[in-house]
């Protein structure tokens, strides 16, 4: 199921081609990238201190960001395991009558 992205026509066209994460998937994705980036940051800090070169810290953090990007940006199936259970659409006369009542 696509989600609606507004903005530049090309970007929104491409974005709307992809399926979207469900709510649980978004929660998981957020935890994923936060843990990965913080972990790589801590390891990179220790490694950079060991080498006495701060650029090494930046490189390790960059690797973590790359990994987190690959893992979290595309809506992989693992982030789409809890789809929303939508109510079935009502058809026919009954549905139209309900609609008229509520409105």
């Amino acid at each position: 199921m696509g989600n609606f992205v507004s903005g530049t026509p090309l970007i929104s066209y491409i974005a709307n081609k992809f399926p979207s994460m469900d709510y649980e998937g978004q929660r998981l994705a957020e935890k994923c990238y936060q843990w990965i980036i913080v972990l790589f940051g801590v390891v990179g800090f220790i490694w950079g201190y060991f080498c006495q070169q701060y650029i090494q810290t930046v490189y390790v953090l960059g690797a973590g960001v790359l990994l987190a990007t690959l893992l979290v940006i595309p809506p992989w199936p693992m982030f789409r395991r809890h789809p929303l259970q939508w109510q079935n659409s009502r058809k026919g006369r009954q549905g139209r009558q309900d609609k008229a009542k509520t409105s």
């Binding site: 989600n3 992205v5 970007i11 974005a15 992809f18 979207s20 994460m21 978004q26 994705a29 957020e30 990238y33 936060q34 980036i37 953090l61 973590g64 960001v65 987190a68 990007t69 979290v72 940006i73 595309p74 809506p75």
Partner: peptide, 16 residues
């Protein structure tokens, strides 16, 4: 977090 662009934005901001 529901679109790829917003996730990209979040990852980038968090890494900075």
């Amino acid at each position: 977090m529901n679109t790829a662009l917003s996730r990209l934005n979040a990852v980038f901001a968090f890494s900075l």
